[in-house]
């Protein structure tokens, strides 16, 4: 098998007593589009800091194309483009001034840099804005300039940390469209951290991070298929009591996730009459649906994606 773009082996990270990552292991195949899905505070940013050499893991190792991020950070940095949650641009500088400064940080020569800036601005539809100050651009355009910044040195691996935060759906769509040729034509590997289900759904493979643990790993299709053709979700005033009596009286596997009860059964529609017969008024609603990534998340994490992850916050 070819060398993986990223190999994370048993990485644990602690900020003081707080465990931000716990025994995380996964590989990302070169040329693939990998998503890290999880709520804020799940450990995505910590993992990104480790991959981008800004933080050394407390335990375990992370490697980018074979180079250890803690022991050979310089070799990693050459291969890496990083887009942070906040654009790394100076508002008062023009688009092209910003890009030239970052190109210089990567040691790009003047001629190469001029050509590369021209190519990227054209690709992202920014060629007319090169002389505008960044503060004059909309949030969506700033994101695209920042993306151009991260791509100046043609990195083999691109890390995107919640890159569409604060963008409206149209701007989000066009951000991802702008990335498409990079994967198709340049064979770059992309890792995106996101808490948005549709962004995760577009990935080749995803890892689900919750409270520092990697609770699921696989392609979105495979993860959804694991849950069967359909999932059954019940809501009730007292979900705990309902789950307990479903187990006791009907013998189905039932568990409380968030405010709902999930019942595992190969053919959910078939058991609906039995459920209503047995529990009647105690059931406020029953939903049968094709599994979504949200279901995948809830089943593996044991709580809903938008539920605050128990007030955990990430130290700066």
């Amino acid at each position: 098998m070819a060398e993986p773009a990223v190999s994370v082996q048993r990485v644990t990270h602690r900020y003081g007593d707080h465990v931000a990552l716990c025994d995380v292991t996964f590989d990302v195949e070169a040329g693939s589009f990998f998503g890290l899905l999880g709520p804020n505070g799940g450990g995505k940013t910590t993992l990104f800091r480790i991959l981008s050499t800004l933080l050394r893991p407390t335990e375990g190792t992370a490697a980018v194309f074979g180079a250890d991020t803690a022991r050979a950070p310089h070799a990693v940095r050459r291969k890496l483009g990083v887009i942070f949650q906040q654009p790394a641009l100076d508002d008062e500088l023009t688009v092209s001034e910003n890009l030239r400064i970052h190109g210089a940080l990567y040691g790009l020569g003047k001629r190469d840099l001029t050509r590369r800036i021209g190519t990227l601005l054209e690709r992202f539809g920014l060629e007319k804005r090169a002389r505008d100050r960044v503060k004059a651009l909309s949030g969506g355009l700033q994101r695209r300039v920042d993306l151009a910044r991260g791509l100046l040195h043609s990195p083999r691996l691109l890390l995107l940390d919640e890159p569409t935060t604060g963008l409206d759906p149209v701007a989000r769509r066009s951000f991802w469209d702008a990335l498409e040729p990079l994967r198709r034509d340049e064979g770059a590997t992309i890792i995106v951290a996101t808490h948005l289900l549709d962004e995760a759904d577009a990935c080749d493979r995803i890892g689900i991070l919750d409270r520092g643990r990697l609770v699921a790993l696989g392609s979105p299709e495979a993860l959804k298929a694991e849950l069967g053709d359909a999932t059954l979700w019940l809501s009730a005033d007292d979900p705990r009591a309902l789950a307990e009596s479903i187990r006791a009286r009907l013998g189905f596997e039932a568990r409380v996730i968030g405010a709902q009860v999930q019942v595992r059964h190969p053919d959910p529609p078939a058991i609906l009459p039995a459920l209503y017969e047995t529990f009647g008024d105690a059931l406020k609603s029953a939903t049968v649906r094709t599994p979504t990534l949200e279901d995948v998340f809830m089943v593996h994490a044991g709580h809903a994606l938008d539920e605050a992850a128990h007030g955990e916050t990430l130290p700066a």
Partner: peptide
Amino acid sequence: ERKSGFLQAALVAPT
């Protein structure tokens, strides 16, 4: 710039 990104971007560059 710690949070706004420039510093982090400079630090992940091979400079």
